[in-house]
Design a protein around this nucleic acid. Structure first.
Length: 259
DNA sequence: ATGGCCGGCGCAGCCGGA
């Protein structure tokens, strides 16, 4: 079973690119971020006609997440627990039934956090605390749990082509990296890092020729519970999609699980 | 060596992104 994450940077602007990739890659489950759409305006039809069930957690103009799945989505929950006043749509979770039992999928769009001297950075860190608390609860089920999305964290210097350029950025702050490590240390495996020490990127800025100069960063991650890690068969980054017409600035990242 | 963008909203630029 192929499970992917992709920050598409606007579903209405990206629907042709998205459906082209769905046809090519044929993932079983996809977590989407930055759909930038309310639920009612999400182009479900074009995706359902490719054989997917669709669950969205949208918001007008910004943010927004979704899960697409060839298998029925059960127990869909929207929003990250821990702050009833948080109106930003950044988390969606669902369960799918697979031959081995239940597979839990958590799709997230973690706050960017810039600039550092604004209220956005403490919001990012507080959101990561809430994610850690929720992930600990879900790990206690001791089931395959895939927690994937745009984490907006550069875990290590190797995960940026030019790490020194990110020293003043929320994505590479010691507090952001520490919170990501804390989350992992609950028992998750960084799927990509568990299979390679190579320098690989998932994001290239639209500006400053970042793509042709390969000035990328790795910020889209797939974390696996121990029970999911046991079933890991492969991992990949669909880098070529960044070179398509009308690309997102992120590319799809996926794992293959034997469930 | 350096600088370059894009989407949504809504119809002009501004906000947000990373």
């Amino acid at each position: 079973m192929k499970i992917a994450t992709w920050n598409i940077n606007g579903v209405k602007a990206r629907i042709e690119t998205l459906t082209a990739w769905l046809r090519e890659a044929s993932p079983d489950i996809v977590a989407l971020q930055e759909i930038k759409s309310v639920d009612e305006a999400f182009p479900r039809g074009a995706i359902e006609s490719l054989g997917y069930n669709v669950a969205t957690h949208g918001q007008k103009g910004f943010n927004g997440v979704a899960i697409l799945s060839k298998l029925p989505l059960e127990d869909v929950s929207r929003g990250l627990p821990g702050d009833p006043d948080d109106v930003q749509s950044r988390y969606i979770e669902a369960v799918v039934s697979v031959p081995s039992g239940a597979l839990r999928i958590g799709g997230l769009y973690l706050p960017n956090g810039n600039p550092l001297d604004s209220e956005k950075f403490p919001y990012k860190l507080a959101w990561m605390r809430r994610l850690e608390a929720h992930a600990a609860v879900q790990l206690a089920f001791e089931e395959p749990f895939v927690l994937l999305g745009d984490y907006n964290v550069i875990p290590e210097p190797i995960d940026a082509r030019t790490p020194e350029a990110w020293l003043g950025d929320a994505l590479f702050q010691p507090e952001s990296r520490e919170a990501f490590r804390r989350l992992q240390n609950l028992g998750f495996t960084d799927a990509l890092r568990s299979t390679t020490e190579a320098q690989l990127f998932t994001f290239w800025d639209y500006q400053a020729g970042s793509w042709p100069r390969n000035e990328g960063i790795r910020i889209d991650h797939i974390l696996l519970s121990p029970q999911a890690t046991d079933r890991l068969k492969g991992v990949g980054i669909d880098k070529h999609v960044r070179g398509w017409e009308k690309p997102s600035d992120h590319v799809p990242v996926w794992v293959e699980l034997d469930v």
